[in-house]
Nucleic acid binder design. Structure first.
Lengths: 128, 128
DNA sequence: TTACTATTGATAATTGTTTTCATTAATATT
DNA sequence: AATATTAATGAAAACAATTATCAATAGTAA
């Protein structure tokens, strides 16, 4: 948690492990996996998937993380966090959340929005 | 493609393989993986991740699939597709898409929205 | 018909994640 | 304190989805 708070980013288990292990060499990879599982269950951490085969974890917005969404380049995997333009979203999202919640009898805890596309570098040059 | 069109659902590679292989026994698993990769690249198929360790694929809305989003139960993995309430989204999403596109110089091809929560069965009974 | 290239599927290799299990730490009970 | 019991830990093995390899086949060009 301290690492995720300090950096504010989204990281793979391996990355988290390397960092935590540096400060606390006794902590093993399995414990990192287990702890992240619990933190996600508790709602303190969110699991993300950007399609490169490994899960990423970040502080959930409910527990001090910034409320933001992601813009993913399907070419190189580059991820841009954005938190501008969120105001417009909020009302709509909240409405949908309530309607869905009622209609499908779900207790909704979180939402994720991703835009997928190609960054400038990955776009074919005739599309630039 | 024919299978995804006919069913209109989201399936794992294994599920797609089993179905395609039944009709065309000569087609192997590797080819299914390879073909899906190409279809995704072409924008005809979307890859989804519901956090159970395997990717799902569905017809992209651009190529005849219904435009819908997903409501995922983090307890049992149940997925509800919804396409109601999308009208409200559309305008907002379109605005954000344009703004993001301009600001970060991305060519945005697709967006994904997921609501995560607990379905009625998975909710602890004191929360019912 | 022949030479060359691209596609295929079976298998092996890889890799992120989960299980197993003996060890250690923590807690409860004398 | 000393002991018994339970829970947490990490190393290694097992697992599963995906990717790479490669010989065989199909397709195309000469």
């Amino acid at each position: 948690m301290e690492f995720l708070q300090r950096t504010g980013g989204h990281f793979s288990v391996e990355e988290i492990y390397r960092n935590v292990h540096k400060a606390f060499p006794s902590i093993g990879l399995t414990t990192v996996y287990r702890t992240l599982e619990v933190l996600v269950e508790m709602g303190l951490v969110s699991r993300l998937d950007f399609g490169d085969g490994k899960s990423r974890y970040e502080l959930s917005s409910g527990s001090g993380g910034t409320h933001h969404h992601h813009l993913c380049c399907t070419g190189c995997g580059r991820i841009v966090d954005y938190q501008e333009f969120l105001e417009e979203e909020k009302k709509v999202i909240k409405n949908i959340e309530e309607a869905l919640s009622r209609k499908h009898n779900f207790q909704i805890n979180e939402h994720q929005i991703q835009f997928l596309g190609l960054c400038y570098d990955c776009r074919p040059k005739e599309a630039k």
